[in-house]
Design a protein around this nucleic acid. Structure first.
Lengths: 123, 123
DNA sequence: CGTCTAGTTTGACGACCGTCTAGGCAATCG
DNA sequence: CGATTGCCTAGACGGTCGTCAAACTAGACG
């Protein structure tokens, strides 16, 4: 029950994009599927949200704790969390009154790999 | 010889953001400085441009070759290249008639590090 | 049931983004 | 010089994005 494939909005699989962008040219199709993930990271609030969630001890964070960390209204935080959730960088689970968010580390790792610069590439 | 500091638009240094986002929460300031780089990667055309440049043998690519790879007008390609250049992911150099773009691998590597998931983090 | 708290959804508004056409600048070649 | 080619800038236009206030849904607790 582990190793769920990383998903994109439309449901397409991102795993076949797990290649350093430096190693060979991305196809138009790969670029089209990767870009939304980077776009999601292109907002300071979402970057911090993801970092807060991903670095939190226990691996999950309550929305109430996240909202407190920003000078923004709850709907705005909720909106950003939705964006992160829809591209598969986080998942959400309701337990009683509270909703907990958890980072999808494989998705993060994939994006890291795409940007990675293997030794000796194009010296 | 190596380790030129990666620069941001305003001239601020990005090097002190070279920490996995999973390891500890990004500060608001760090997020503010990192986000524009990811935003630049959040467009499929720019992702492909960067990949074409970064993976090209010899390390540099002529604009004319880049333009041909897309179904877009030259000004549009030029605009995207400018975005990549202004955040420091590529550099440009004119030699005679042609302009050559080159990928800034340290900048790429920094972003890769930010997204990386070190072993044993938040098991 | 009624009420309270936690989050999300909806709809609106201003700002920003990607693309184009038209025009400009720089280097090359007769 | 004038003509041509390569690339960039300027300006415009439609679409998307980030934010908020208001209204809604889901549990918890009497």
């Amino acid at each position: 029950m582990s190793k769920q494939p990383v998903q994109l909005v439309g449901g397409a699989d991102l795993e076949d994009c797990r290649v350093p962008l430096v190693a060979e040219p991305l196809t138009a199709d790969q670029a089209e599927r990767l870009a939304p993930s980077f776009k999601a990271l292109g907002d300071p609030v979402r970057l911090r949200l993801l970092s807060l969630i991903a670095s939190h001890a226990g691996g999950e964070t309550c929305v109430c704790d996240l909202t407190e960390a920003f000078d923004l209204t709850a709907p705005t935080i909720s909106h950003h969390l939705k964006v992160l959730k829809e591209i598969g960088l986080v998942t959400a689970e309701r337990r009683g009154t509270w909703v907990y968010y958890r980072a999808e580390q494989p998705a993060l790792d994939l994006l890291s790999t795409v940007l990675s610069v293997p030794q000796g590439v194009n010296a």
